[in-house]
């Protein structure tokens, strides 16, 4: 009987792996099959000559270049906005908070982590409307609002990485600089954080990835289906995930559907590029850190 249960467990596990792997493989195969034969230049730039679009800012109407540009810029701005408050809150939790303050901030960060992205988007939208009612000149839906709301969405990710990074530092290293007369803040910014630079960048990667794939937040705060011209922080913009969603319900013919698949692959690759770039940066920073400490010896 027990043997039987053990055997069943083994069979079940491998079957689960088989189902899991097949599902994901078919997802990728379908994507690859459907973009076969799609011309990359027309996918990105439509009928506009690529050079004109890239250098002279000529509007692109049929391609996904504006959406790609929109996604990259909104994610960059969002992470830039979130890095300082995120890292500082992490430092606060790890180094400064008393037991009660720690409990409260910790709970709130946990809630923020679990908050559905559409609720964050709704909050961003409401804040935008409230501000607009108070100051009629305030900007309406635009990239700046989306970036702020996205930054808020990925904030807990940065907080948690910083906090765990700081907590994992060995006591000898932690005490060295204060023993030499450094203040607490100096110790954190010149010794502890550089020591954990790798982990911090890991957190930024995660935040970037999460921001790039999120659709709900930007949908409520400023993304539109078509914004062919150049981008500005205070204008509405296009974004890849929203483009895919829009295509899924609004495609008129098979060619447009294929554009949707092309955009899907692009978004998948974009997340991959973010990861790869961050990994490269990671090894660079740790190399530099090791180099400088070696020089000081």
């Amino acid at each position: 009987m027990k043997r039987c249960a053990e055997l069943l467990l083994v069979i079940f596990s491998w079957l689960a792996l088989l189902v899991f792997a097949t599902s994901f493989l078919s997802l990728f195969v379908v994507l690859l099959l459907r973009v076969r034969g799609l011309d990359a230049v027309s996918l990105f730039f439509g009928d506009t000559p690529p050079v004109d679009a890239l250098l002279h800012g000529l509007p692109v109407f049929d391609g996904i270049y504006p959406a790609l540009l929109g996604t990259v810029s909104v994610v960059m701005v969002a992470v830039l906005c979130a890095v300082l408050p995120g890292v500082f809150t992490g430092i606060y939790l790890a180094e400064f908070a008393g037991p009660w303050a720690h409990r409260i901030v910790n709970l709130l960060v946990d809630v923020l982590t679990g908050l559905p992205s559409i609720v964050v988007g709704l909050a961003g939208f409401s804040f935008m409307v409230l501000l607009h009612n108070l100051f009629p000149g305030a900007p309406g839906p635009c990239m700046a609002w989306s970036a702020l709301a996205l930054g808020f969405l990925v904030l807990p990710c940065l907080v948690r990485t910083t906090e765990t990074a700081l907590q994992g530092i060995p006591a000898e290293l932690r005490r060295t600089a204060p023993a030499l007369g450094a203040t607490k803040v100096q110790n954190i910014f010149f010794v502890l954080l550089p020591f954990r630079a790798k982990d911090l960048l890991g957190g930024v990667i995660l935040a970037t990835g999460r921001a790039a794939e999120d659709t709900a937040v930007i949908m409520l705060t400023g993304v539109v289906a078509s914004a062919p011209g150049m981008h500005s922080l205070f204008k509405q913009f296009e974004a890849l995930p929203f483009y895919i969603y829009y295509m899924s319900s609004q495609y008129r013919d098979l060619a447009e559907l294929q554009y949707g698949f092309g955009a899907s692959i692009t978004l998948l690759l974009l997340c991959g590029v973010f990861f790869a770039a961050a990994f490269l940066l990671q090894s660079y920073v740790s190399f530099r850190f090791r180099g400088s400490s070696w020089l000081q010896k």
């Binding site: 994507l31 698949f261 978004l267």
Partner: peptide
Amino acid sequence: MSGVPTVVYGFV
């Protein structure tokens, strides 16, 4: 796999 965007699942 955990990085595959939600809309891509939805679309396919």
